[in-house]
């Protein structure tokens, strides 16, 4: 099976991002339960650790990639007229790119 074959790349992207998201959610929940940041100072001190910032940035990259494949699949399953399908896929792509730029901008200045 070729790597470039239709559907292989989104399939792999969905699975790889899923594994990272599952790992991150558990790891982040455990960190929050251990550190228990209860005010702004503690929350920022927690987030500003290099490992956490990088892990959180990767989380958003994975979440938005995962949302792209999933949202794309839902649109392709239910929306059949070509014009509407292209319009909705474009809208989804722009929405997710906007979310990625927004969240990376927040994380860069933390």
């Amino acid at each position: 099976m070729s790597w470039r074959a239709g559907g292989v790349r989104p399939f792999v992207l969905q699975r790889v991002s899923a594994v990272y998201l599952a790992f991150f959610i558990v790891a982040f929940a455990v960190c929050m339960l251990v550190v228990r940041p209860t005010d702004y100072i503690a929350w920022m001190a927690f987030l500003q650790q290099p490992v956490i910032v990088v892990g959180v940035a990767l989380f958003w990259l994975a979440a938005i990639s995962h949302a792209w494949v999933g949202g794309r699949d839902v649109i392709m399953d239910y929306v059949h007229p070509d014009g509407l399908r292209v319009a909705l896929l474009s809208l989804l792509g722009m929405f997710l790119l906007a979310m990625l730029i927004w969240v990376l901008r927040i994380l860069l200045v933390i």
Binding site: A63, I64, A67, G70, G71, V74, L96, M99, W102, V103, I106
Partner: peptide, 12 residues
């Protein structure tokens, strides 16, 4: 999945 996708602006 669709719910979480639509909630992205809220989370961010």
């Amino acid at each position: 999945g669709v719910l979480l996708l639509l909630a992205l602006p809220f989370f961010i």
